[in-house]
């Protein structure tokens, strides 16, 4: 959606903060950050973030649009909610990181082949098509995401775990041919399509209102 990206650049030329406040989930909280750094220090994968949350918040205010939206940082959030529990200003940091990641992907700016981004999309596709997650298929899709050859290698490396899961009745090979689904799959598809339209409309309207 680079067209949307272009539209957003023109609309919010001088203020990335305003863009985030309007278009990113819980983005209106960003200006409340007081740069104490507790979030960065509390993050289980903190050392792996190119820019930990505290930095991301300051970069948003400093108009570093590309550096933020193209960063792999937000994709290292494990959703542990430690940052939310500890933030002295009560910022919903986990949600803001998810929101930034999701927004960057919508604009086509998320880093390519970021493993968590790929896995998250595989996960979402499974929900969107079945209403419930098909654990076997998402596992296989992740193993085979870089082609067949690599997929076979990955699957071989994980075969003992797969066998153990089947032996303990915690994975069913028949899931491959269908498996757990909702009855009203078409209804769920309609609901999600409408929800997506509403969300895109909100951004296209330059976010009139919150």
């Amino acid at each position: 959606m680079t067209q949307m990206n272009q539209a957003m650049i023109e609309k919010y030329r001088s203020s990335f903060l305003k863009e985030v406040e309007t278009n990113v989930e819980e983005g209106h909280w960003v200006k409340m950050c007081m740069q104490c750094g507790v979030c960065s220090g509390s993050c289980p994968l903190g050392p792996h973030w190119e820019h930990p949350p505290q930095e991301i918040f300051m970069m948003i205010r400093a108009n570093k649009r590309d550096e933020v939206l193209k960063s792999s940082s937000m994709w290292f959030c494990t959703s542990c909610y430690n940052c939310i529990a500890r933030c002295p200003r009560g910022l919903p940091i986990t949600h803001i990181m998810h929101g930034l990641a999701s927004y960057s992907k919508k604009l086509g700016l998320a880093p390519k082949s970021q493993p968590t981004e790929s896995f998250g999309q595989i996960f979402w596709n499974s929900i969107a098509s079945n209403g419930r997650v098909n654990e076997l298929k998402i596992g296989l899709a992740l193993q085979f995401k870089d082609g067949f050859g690599q997929g076979v290698k990955n699957a071989m490396a994980q075969k003992d775990l797969g066998m153990a899961m089947m032996k303990t009745k915690r994975m069913n090979p028949m899931e491959f041919f269908g498996g757990h689904t909702c009855k009203d799959k078409s209804g769920i598809a309609r609901m999600l399509k409408k929800a997506q339209e509403v969300e895109d409309q909100h951004i296209a309207n330059y976010g009139a209102g919150k």
Binding site: E25, T78, S79, H98, G99, A101, S102, Y103, K105, K106, T116, E117, F119, G120, Q121, F123, W124, N125, I127, A128, G131, R132, V133, C182, K183, D184, I188, M191, L192, A195, Q196, V198, E199
Partner: peptide, 25 residues
């Protein structure tokens, strides 16, 4: 006929409204 909640990683494919619609259902 309950459906998946989107879990912690659903945000990659579903924005705020699609994701929360799942639990609302």
């Amino acid at each position: 006929d309950w459906n998946c909640c989107g879990a912690s990683i659903g945000y990659a494919g579903g924005g705020e409204i699609p994701r929360l619609s799942l639990s609302a259902r």
